[in-house]
């Protein structure tokens, strides 16, 4: 979703007041459309965003900081970060490998491969959790064997990692494939002809070219990893202090009618989301690309 050079110029020409009246709308109609858009955004984005922080601080700053420094919450922070530290690098490496194979070579079945990479986007998060319960759960296909070996995957950290891996497989690959397809293979070929090895070509030529796309993908992947709820909730078992990630901690606190604590934890996740969006906008600005 990025515009080419001509897109930039068109935008400048069409921007605001430079449009002549015959191809623009009357002022009252403009005002009406802007109000409608603001009303919609206000109701669905600004109000929920504000409400999270209002509810979080409802019982004052002391209660807020008490809630976010509680042992269970800190355990949830640790588990969420642990999951991200495992999941994001794995999907990053996968994304680069898959994008290299898909964008630099022609082979049969490429489109099917891309569709497989996209699959997690089309699958409900609940199903993503379900498949690992079927595979590794107590009544699952490998359950009895795992039981005899005393290995726990479901209702434990490995299950949470697996479900999150499944959900976030496409993020880095999806960003890199179109980018590397656009860049073609000439630069790499030149490097090889000049005597560089395969790895050297990748690190000196390809990597600098895909740097921003890579960072962009990592930001999206991290945000989803930290925030994933549906898939993780199915495999987690909701054991306090052990298998609760932050989004699950929010759910538990809320269902216990501990609303202000739930919103305090939710506010942490909201700050994370805002930081991810700011980082994403920064990368877009830095790489000079438009959505």
């Amino acid at each position: 979703m990025r515009a080419d050079v001509s897109g930039h110029e068109v935008l400048k020409v069409t921007a605001g007041k430079t449009r002549c009246s015959s191809i623009s709308e009357p002022p009252f109609f403009r005002a009406l459309l802007i109000s409608l858009a603001l009303l919609f955004i206000g109701m669905f984005l600004v109000m929920p965003l504000t409400a999270v922080f209002l509810q979080a601080f409802e019982k004052g700053a002391m209660a807020y900081f008490a809630a976010i420094s509680e042992t269970d919450t800190l355990a949830a922070v640790r588990l969420t970060l642990l999951t991200a530290v495992i999941v994001v690098p794995l999907n990053l490496i996968f994304g680069v490998l898959a994008a290299w194979a898909i964008s630099k070579f022609q082979f049969f079945g490429k489109n099917i491969l891309i569709t497989f990479i996209d699959l997690p986007f089309a699958v409900s998060p609940v199903i993503a959790g379900l498949i690992f319960v079927i595979l590794f759960g107590l009544h699952g296909l490998l359950g009895p064997w795992l039981m005899s070996q005393n290995i726990r995957i479901i209702f434990a950290v490995p299950g949470i990692v697996l479900a999150t891996l499944f959900i976030t497989v496409p993020f880095v690959a999806r960003e890199l494939i179109p980018l590397m397809q656009e860049q073609g293979t000439e630069e790499e070929e030149a490097a090889l002809v000049l005597g560089a090895g395969g790895w050297k070509t990748f690190f000196r030529v390809t990597l600098p070219n895909i740097k921003w796309g890579l960072i962009y993908g990592v930001i999206l992947c991290s945000a989803r990893t930290i925030g994933e709820f549906g898939a993780v909730s199915v495999v987690s078992g909701h054991i306090r202090g052990k298998t609760l990630t932050l989004p699950l901690q929010v759910e538990i606190l809320y269902n216990e009618y501990n609303f202000s604590a739930a919103f305090a934890v939710a506010s942490l996740l909201t700050l994370m989301a805002l930081a991810a969006m700011a980082a994403k906008n920064f990368v877009e600005w830095k790489s000079g690309r438009q959505r």
Binding site: L45, V46, F263, T270, M277
Partner: peptide, 24 residues
Amino acid sequence: VIDGLVDLPFALPTSVAGIVLTTM
């Protein structure tokens, strides 16, 4: 700001969206 805010539902964990919308 609004242009940047449009992506909020992609970045916000769904459980946070769930509890805040329910409360509202």
